[in-house]
Simulated assay, not measured.
Amino acid sequence: MILAARDICFAYPGRPVLSGASLALAPGELVCLLGSNGAGKSTLLRIMLGLQRAARGSVMLGGKALAGHGRRQLARLIAYVPQVHVAPFPYTVLQVALMGRLPANGIFRAPAAADVDRVHRLLDNMGIAHLAGRAYTEISGGERQLTLITRALAQDARLLVMDEPLAGLDYGNQVRLLDRLESLAAQGYGVLMTTHDPNQPLTGCQRVALLNSGRIAADGAAAAVLTPAAIHALYGVQVELLRGADGRGIAFRPARPDPVFNA
């Protein structure tokens, strides 16, 4: 069940965003999509999910046009974690996570005991079981992100599309979540996530795709794609790659000190 976008073009009024972007996600992959602010990462994800319509290009799921799948069927195949989510009502964390069972159960069926038990286990795996009874509107942004990821996992979809899932998380939760996403990929899930931090994909992502000037400028193994030259092309900064004892890249750092700005 491969999700594939081909030659996607899209523009907002007066501003072209995507001009022939192609990207695919297969089960068993953890793919990181990098690009600067405004490059069109979120737009590309939304088009791949059928939430936004491309001006040109196609999106296929399992060899079938995305539009040929019903919304409920899509929700059982692909789960989405948005970058920003505002709850219309102060649901509890448990209630928000249980919404992930709607594609399987329908809106007129109450969650079964097995659904509740499963979501409690997922909350525990995410390290937020203690928040189950708290109002979703009263927890931190990072805790909301973990709740949305729990909701996505509760859908039992095998493809996970995540827009900045590490945003707002403290360092410990970033490390734990990346480990969890690597584990899911090893179990056969396909995970596509966006990030602004080129250090995050160095250790965990099987593939890295770089979105630049409306197109995927590079797509491949992190060691091959994430180079100082590529980072400079994306973000306009000079960096150097620090390497471990085994010669593998472990982190980027500025190649020279930032200029001192006088107040």
Rank of each mutant, 00 (worst) to 15 (best):
D246Q: 14
A233P: 02
G214N: 06
G236L: 03
V59H: 01
R109G: 03
G63L: 01
G141C: 00
V86G: 13
Y235D: 03
Y80F: 15
A75H: 03
C205T: 13
P90D: 15
Y235N: 01
G68I: 01
G247Y: 07
D170L: 08
L202I: 09
L192P: 07
P228Y: 05
N173Y: 10
H232R: 15
A65W: 05
D163E: 11
A110F: 07
L122E: 01
I231F: 06
I8H: 11
A223D: 14
L131K: 03
H130Q: 12
Q52W: 01
R101Y: 05
F89W: 13
S42G: 12
V175D: 03
S58C: 05
Q206A: 14
R253H: 04
L61A: 07
H196Y: 12
S183G: 15
F10E: 00
N37W: 08
A167R: 12
S183H: 15
D219Y: 06
L30M: 05
E138N: 10
A75L: 00
G133Y: 04
Y91D: 09
A217N: 04
V191A: 08
A114V: 13
V17S: 00
R134F: 04
I149V: 12
S213W: 04
G20M: 03
E29D: 12
L123I: 02
L234M: 14
L146D: 01
T203M: 12
L102N: 12
Y136V: 07
D117K: 13
A24L: 09
L51S: 06
H120E: 13
L51N: 09
N37P: 11
A5R: 10
